[in-house]
């Protein structure tokens, strides 16, 4: 899962980014509405956290433009204002939820979970441990085990696996997968390609090819099979 944070206050943005990173999520941080709009339109993020009081293009304008363009990215707005009118305006513009500043991380994540549950209808989001036969993935510890033996994955490999797993039963395009993880800096670009990474994940989590949880769908991308 990858989150977009649009926040102009440097301290607040760093704190948010750190909070996501502490929980093992990758984020993209931008400080104004124009960049936020570009990112949201170009990259397939799981959810965006948007501050309403942005310089230049406001958070409200950003949401309106995204929705007008047909973009359904789940959005949680942050507002320093306490009035109901601001919230109503944000919801009317197309936001999915709001939070008043100061933001507590537990509160923010409770809202993110609620929004993703409602918008994506993904019941797996609350399951801390995902299982497929002898294979399991603990989202809290960010650990993958096969027959109780730990499987060593790089950060990018783990993020791709979690993304595919959380979207089990739905084919994920290479672009969507590429957008879902943060590339390891300094890695060989070829080795860092989606094909290369998925291939390595397959070999690591299913060396004997007994389970075959990840299926390559020709011309469309990859599919994590649903557990029976």
């Amino acid at each position: 899962m990858r989150f977009l944070i649009v926040e102009d206050h440097i301290g607040m943005a760093d704190q948010l980014s750190r909070g996501f990173s502490d929980r093992g999520y990758s984020t993209k941080l931008v400080s104004n509405g124009e960049e936020g709009l570009f990112e949201a339109q170009e990259i397939d993020y799981t959810l965006a956290v948007v501050d309403l009081g942005l310089p230049g293009m406001s958070g409200l304008e950003l949401i309106k433009k995204l929705r007008k363009a047909g973009n359904q990215l789940p959005i949680i707005v942050l507002t320093a204002r306490n009035d109901v009118e601001t919230i109503v305006q944000a919801m009317e513009a197309g936001a999915d939820d709001y939070l008043k500043k100061p933001v507590y991380f537990e509160e923010l994540f409770a809202h993110i979970e609620a929004v993703l549950r409602r918008v994506l209808g993904d019941p797996k989001l609350d399951e801390p441990v995902l299982e497929y036969g002898e294979l399991s993935l603990d989202t809290r510890k960010r650990v993958v085990t096969l027959a109780r033996e730990r499987v060593e994955l790089t950060r990018a490999e783990y993020e791709i696996l979690e993304h595919l797993w959380r979207n089990a039963g739905r084919v994920q395009s290479k672009k969507t997968i590429a957008d879902s993880y943060q590339r390891d800096p300094g890695a060989d670009p070829k080795a860092n390609s989606v094909e290369g990474l998925v291939g390595r994940i397959k070999r690591k989590i299913d060396p004997d090819k007994n389970l075959q949880p990840i299926e390559t769908v020709r011309g469309r991308g990859y599919l994590f099979r649903e557990a029976h």
């Binding site: 919230i87 109503v88 919801m91 009317e92 999915d96 939820d97 709001y98 409770a110 809202h111 609620a114 929004v115 549950r117 409602r118 918008v119 209808g121 019941p123 609350d126």
Partner: peptide
């Protein structure tokens, strides 16, 4: 506007 807000907590799984 408020009717579209999601509900916090796993006890409300529906959309």
């Amino acid at each position: 506007a408020y009717g579209r807000l999601p509900r916090l907590g796993a006890q409300f799984p529906g959309r």
